[in-house]
Every structure is written in structure tokens, then in C-alpha cells.
Design a protein around this nucleic acid. Sequence first.
DNA 1: GCGTGGGGTGAATCCGCGG
DNA 2: TCCGCGGATTCACCCCACG
Lengths: 375, 375
Amino acid sequence: MVPVSALSARPAHPARAQWLDSIIKGDCVAALEALPDHSVDVIFADPPYNLQLNGVLHRPDQSKVDAVDDEWDQFASFEAYDAFTRAWLLACKRVLKPTGTIWVIGSYHNIFRVGAKMQDLGFWLLNDVVWRKTNPMPNFKGRRFQNAHETLIWASPNAEARGYTFNYDAMKAANDDVQMRSDWLFPICSGSERIKGEDGKKVHPTQKPEALLSRILLSSTKPGDVVLDPFMGSGTTGAVAKRLGRHFVGVEREQDYIDAAEKRIAAVEPLGEEMLAPLPGKKTQPRVAFLSLIESGLLAPGDTLTSPKGDHVAVVRADGTLARAKDAGSIHRLGAIVQGQESCNGWTFWHYEEDGNRYPIDRLRGRIRASIAGI
Amino acid sequence: MVPVSALSARPAHPARAQWLDSIIKGDCVAALEALPDHSVDVIFADPPYNLQLNGVLHRPDQSKVDAVDDEWDQFASFEAYDAFTRAWLLACKRVLKPTGTIWVIGSYHNIFRVGAKMQDLGFWLLNDVVWRKTNPMPNFKGRRFQNAHETLIWASPNAEARGYTFNYDAMKAANDDVQMRSDWLFPICSGSERIKGEDGKKVHPTQKPEALLSRILLSSTKPGDVVLDPFMGSGTTGAVAKRLGRHFVGVEREQDYIDAAEKRIAAVEPLGEEMLAPLPGKKTQPRVAFLSLIESGLLAPGDTLTSPKGDHVAVVRADGTLARAKDAGSIHRLGAIVQGQESCNGWTFWHYEEDGNRYPIDRLRGRIRASIAGI
DNA sequence: GCGTGGGGTGAATCCGCGG
DNA sequence: TCCGCGGATTCACCCCACG
């Protein structure tokens, strides 16, 4: 693959490299020295996010949130984090084939710095992809939006790179015959998939779901490709690569993680023909915020809604709440209040008028859903 | 548009500033000199995306894609774009109130650079928010995922900033009584909302949907707040701000855009105050001292209160404290003590008995509040 | 075996006012 | 500006105990 002369000090790449389908212990930059130039097809990197947490956070029920406070996620400054990022990105760039691509995942704490550094180093961004979590942790203090997604960057090693793998047709077929979008919906890793130690506690604080890695590898690799994970952790990349008939190389510093990952990967049974089965489709019907009806113009602030028989009347307000006399709240709360009940499905209780007939606002929700069908 | 005197001396903020509810013509950094320090509550910025397009792109039917190739979106290098970004962010930081927040929207071409620079300048990221497009442009070459979203960054001016506006309760009520997430779904701006010139062509290449601005302003501003848009374009921010009873200031270089925006904003009819009243959350309800329950006769000294399950008992004292054995203190302190916890909401923890049932004393507080409201 | 309710938990940069 | 303290704050899902 690479002429011996090009490597000088490094040994010649054997027919089946020692490092193939194994986890190299060590710091990511140093450990990657074991790999020849241009030797991997795809990289998946889940670097430390550099969370900057102050003190402890409690849930409303007073229980403590088990935060990511591991030593490996601590950096002295943005500058230190940038230097770290630059180093491992450069190491990755060296071992990546010209036809290869790299995926990096992060949150708003680090992904902007990583993305900017990737551009600085000449990587060419192909997409940013949003992993929407079906079950994210709530915001406990009510001071922000629920942080319900993470961001992936997909890039080629340079702007001129051609010939990278993108299984466009497979992705489209897996997505009800429309193009796969840049926003993906998956649950977080939990339940039996979550690797736990003998003490029953999670082995790794940030284990990624196999469904996420599966879509990444199915979209951007071919069977037999070599996938590198420079931050192997609990080994999700290796497990999914093996199952999908791809080779893997992992790098990891902590022996505990290596032990768990090797055991996990050893238990994986590679898929046969089912590998070609399309990815599971959409979940249940998407949630539609009542505010969306106003934002889309189906209702306007000031419009009146009524109960099914018209004996209760409420006014739509700009922020997506309903008001009646002194009471105000969500469509559900106000529906409950006017009926003197504990709860109420506002979608079926509140009605609007059209052509002299009363219809539940659920009808309008149906229109929104119809307009976004197929997403 | 801007009095000359205001540029040099920067006089004290007049009762109603000249620049309020107007569009300042000029380069964003220079024009913002007209505004005093700490004079705006929220900033929405839609800066040039620095798209790097090579050649023309055709659809499968051979029609040409009308790309963003305007002069204002051209930068010589990442360095030039970074310098530009730094300059306008600094100008924005100066005029932003300490309790204010800033929104910036971008795509993968620029948002990573912008986000990193924001962190470098000390902005504290509160959320990244994903605008998922219901109807994004397809990928015509089948070489990438359909680019179906854009990214917004919401930030405060520094990590220590407190007191910014987030209408948590309104957002939650508008979203079926669950927290508003960081992924929002909207159509792109098209149809009658899209501003078109006499030639029938779109006036601005990247006009944002009003629904997007509406959610931004409803979530992070109060009626009467001042909203700055340093890249005003076709004036979406001004139009939505006016409709929602917020003040706006715009900055824009191109006269064509200013003309279109001013005409557009003039046609906007503001919503009535009753449509805009913020949903009162629990935090805004009047504070009731526990002592008031005793003073009003709802509880009497010597009454006993219990924990929800009845396993802890405490006695009400005349001064509005609770006592149990040797311990005494506020309803909150004693609730924390008996549970061995750091803190406790005594209103929901302590219960009283009525008709053989246990109710939280919060129920009595509700009666006090109801009687206050009736005054 | 099945349905139900309670408990646990996940990459989290998570309070604000008054003295 | 700092400190004390009142009191507000969670969604989806999995597992297990129990009837």
C-alpha cells in the first residue's frame, strides 16, 4: 500500500498488520505512530468534550447528577484544549487515506473549537450531522433549553479529495426512498447495551449507542474497510465494525476501558447477508408543539378556541399559551382548568371554527405532520 | 439616520433613543458606534456564511441553482473571516447589557469558526440550537447527506452573567407541557412571506423565516426589550420584534435591503398587549411567608405538620418556624434536616391533615395567593 | 405470566434576590 | 460585591418488585 522507502524508520506494512482488529494502549498521538501513512479508510473520533462544570447539580428530587468529572476531561484552558485537538487531528490526518473520511462527535462545549481547528488543518467539511436524542437528560433548573442533541462533523482530508465512500443509495433506501438528512434520531445508550462493571455501575461515562456508529459505518465505509477510533473507550466502534464486517483499530489510554472493550468485541458475532438489511425507519409520530400552529400561520394570536360544545372560550396568545379571563397556560392546562379536571388533552378538547364548523385543533396538528411527513 | 453628535461624544442614553426602531445604514462595526454601552437586551446575528462555492451547480433537470454568490459573502481566507467575526462580536459585546444574550445563526461553513471565536472572546454558551428544515434543498450530486439544518448559538456575554431572560414556563407550556428542546422544526422562508422585488425575484438570498425569529424572541426577551440585528438584511428581526411588542435596531450596508426592510416593517401590525403578556411562572408569583398562614388562621401555633408519608412530624410555632425535638428552623431548613439533605422545599414537603387526608402546605399558600389576587 | 408502580439515570458548562 | 437563604426545578426509558 505504501512503499517501504516512504516510511524510512517505520517497519514495512505486513500483509495483515499487527494492529488490525486490536486496541493499542497509549496516548492517542503516540500510539498512532504504530500505523503507517494512509492506512485507514475512516476515522471515528469521540474526543474529550472539555466540560467545565462548577459544583454539583441536583435533580428536583434532590438526587445528585452523576456528572462527567473524569481526569481525562480536564483541560487547563481553551489553549490547552486547542493544542490537544490539533495534535490528535494531525496524527489522524497522517494515517487517513486520501480517499478516507473522518467523523468527530462533540457538544457545544467543544465542537466549535474542533470544527474550526479541522478547517485550519485543511480538512474539508462534507456535512455536520445532528444526533437528536429521543431521551436526553432534562434541564433541571429551567434556565436553558433542554440540551437534546450532539453534533457530528464529517470531513475529507482536504478540499481536493475525491473518491471517498458515501453509500448514497443505501442511505436513501433506508430512509423511505428519500435522501438521508443531516439530522438523525436515536436513543442514548442505556439498558442492556450499556456496559456495566461487576459493581453494576457503567464502565464508561459517555458510551455511544451502537445505532449511531452503525449508521456512520453503513453510510461511509465498505465491507473490509479499516476503521480507526483514536478514543476507543468502551469499544462501540470496534463492536459495530466487527458486526458489519469492517476492520477496526482502537487507541485507548485506560486499561479498564481496554479490558471492557476487548471482552465486548470478542462477544460480537459478525453479520452475514443481513448486513444489507435497511436501517430501521422512523419512530412514532413526531411531537408537534402547539406554538408550531401559530408559527406556521394555521392559528394567529388573538384567535379564539372553544370547547367541543362551545361553552368555554379561550384566546390564543403569541407565545403558544391559551388565556381565559385570569387563567392562562398550555392548551392542556387551560382545558383542565375550565373543566375543573386534573388533566386534559388540549389537542382534542379545543376547537377552532372553519366554514361555520367546529374542528379540534388536532386537525391542524395533522396538517403540520402531513407537511413534515417523510422526515 | 444617526445624529453626528452621537458618534463623537456618545451622549447619555435619551429617553427614547434616535436609533430605536430604526435601521442604521453602514458597516456593522462602525454603525454600532452609535449605540451606548449596554443598551440592547438581545442580539440576533445572521452573519455572512462564507460559503466557498466553486463553479455553478445544476439540478438533475439541468436548471441552475441560484447560489449565494454575493460580494458580501466573499472572504479571502479563514483568517480574514475570523478577523471580521472578531470585530463584529466585540462591537456586539460592548452594546449588550450584562443581562442580555446573543443569538448567532450559521451553517457548517462558518458556525464552528464563529462559535470558537465567541468562546475566545469570553461569551458563555448557553445552548446550541438546531433549526431542522422541513423543506431543505436536496443534495443534487448524491455525494453527501442532505444538508437539512442550520445551527444557532445562544450565549451570554460572560460565564458569570446572571439574570438573562429565558421564558421557561411559556416555552414549556407551548410545547405540550414538556421542556422546549434544542432542536426546532420550521419550514424555510418561502411563499408569500418571502420578500420579492418588482422583478418578482427574491430581494435577499438568505431571508430567515419569521417563525424562527418568533421563537427566539418569545423565549429570550420580554415585551419592551430592545433587539439588535447587526446584519438586518430583509428585516425579519424588525418585523417580528414589532409584531411581538419588542423594540428593534438594525444595521445594514445595502440600501436595497434597507428599503425593503423598512417597507416591510411599516406594514406590520403589533399584537395587542393581552396577546403578549408573559405567562407567569411560579418564580414570578408573589412570595408568601409561612408566617402568613399562621397570621391568617390557616394554621395555628401547636399544629403538627408531617412529611408526605407521615414518618416525620413537626410542630408549628408562633413565630413561623417549625420544631421537632431539638431541631427548629424554617419549613425549608427543618425539612432538609429531617431528611438529612442539603436543601428542601418546605412548601411541598410538609403536609397538614384535613378531612382525614394529607395535603402539602403549598395548598394553603395557594389560598393566600388567591385571596391576594382578588384584592 | 402480565400489568402496574416505584426507583434509577443519562456528556450538564443549570438560581436570584435582598441585605 | 459578597453572602445567606428562600424555594424552584425533570423527560424518556429501563429495571425490578409486587400483586
